[in-house]
């Protein structure tokens, strides 16, 4: 199943927006939810994230593998760090101990569970505002979007090229795995990480070397076309429309409100129902 970035949300409300909006919203949202321990505040932000994700119109079947990985990884992370161990927990205060984890002896209170739920919701909503960057920006718009955000023209073009190379690299990887299987390659089942790494050489090395050899042609083509000249222009002209400004203003307001609430000490404490 292909999990690389694709233009899945074509035609949706978000894909019609200026691509800079889709790049700036995750930054503003991260500022808004960073360091919030109060579940109610995170849920308030989650409403904005959910509406934003719905506007992206990304078909479920196209991203279910990404969501499956994200939810599995996040669940393990939160359960291990915030419930089973005390790596990322908050003190229980006077909360009643509901039960104790047998091996780690961690006392589980309503505070523990509320904080774990806040962290889990924070991670899931960050994915909601992050996925449109991968699936709602037309590949040809990425370079100009980064350039107009102030990144060097050459590096902006590099980001553009990276996203264009992803599908061919993914295809090349699968071709190489199939070709090596015909030659008798089998994925290592060893529990020894060194043996498993060595067993991956027949896949990693040819994929990398083939990509590098093909890249020489791209370098020559770009040199022949005078890449790197002082006055680079882009085919696409970007301009914010009213909807873009409203979306950015909305997320700026959410970020400003949450930062203010954090400084006033309103969202730093864990909410216990």
């Amino acid at each position: 199943m292909d999990v690389t970035p694709r233009y899945l949300g074509a035609g949706s409300f978000l894909s019609r927006r200026d691509p800079r909006v889709l790049l700036l919203v995750p930054v503003l949202y991260l500022v808004a939810v960073a360091g919030i321990a109060d579940l109610r505040a995170v849920l308030l932000c989650a409403v904005a994230a959910l509406l934003y994700y719905r506007a992206a119109g990304i078909p479920w079947r196209g991203v279910r593998a990404n969501w499956a990985f994200m939810l599995t990884f996040t669940t393990i992370l939160v359960v291990v760090n915030s419930i089973l161990t005390s790596t990322d927990t908050r003190a229980g205060g006077n909360s009643e101990v509901l039960f104790t984890i047998p091996v780690t002896h961690s006392a589980i209170t309503w505070t523990t569970l509320s904080y774990a739920a806040a962290v889990f919701t924070r991670y899931v909503t960050l994915a909601m505002v992050g996925f449109p960057v991968a699936f709602n920006i037309a590949p040809s718009d990425l370079g100009v979007a980064f350039a107009r955000l102030g990144l060097s023209q050459r590096l902006a073009y590099g980001v553009d090229l990276t996203f264009r190379f992803l599908p061919s690299t993914w295809a090349s990887l699968h071709e190489t795995i199939d070709a090596q299987r015909i030659r008798g390659y089998e994925h290592s089942r060893s529990r020894n990480p060194v043996k498993r790494l060595i067993a991956l050489k027949p896949v990693v090395v040819p994929v990398t070397v083939n990509a590098l050899i093909d890249a020489e042609d791209t370098v020559n083509a770009m040199d022949l076309r005078g890449f790197g000249g002082r006055h680079r222009t882009w085919m696409r002209e970007l301009a914010f429309d009213r909807a873009d400004v409203l979306i950015l203003a909305g997320f700026c307001a959410v970020a400003a409100a949450m930062v203010a609430a954090r400084f006033l000490g309103l969202t730093g404490a864990v909410w216990v129902p």
């Binding site: 995750p26 991260l30 990404n66 996040t74 960050l126 994915a127 991968a134």
Partner: peptide
């Protein structure tokens, strides 16, 4: 981005 961590 693909694994859902975004900018975290």
């Amino acid at each position: 981005l693909l694994q859902g961590s975004g900018l975290t």
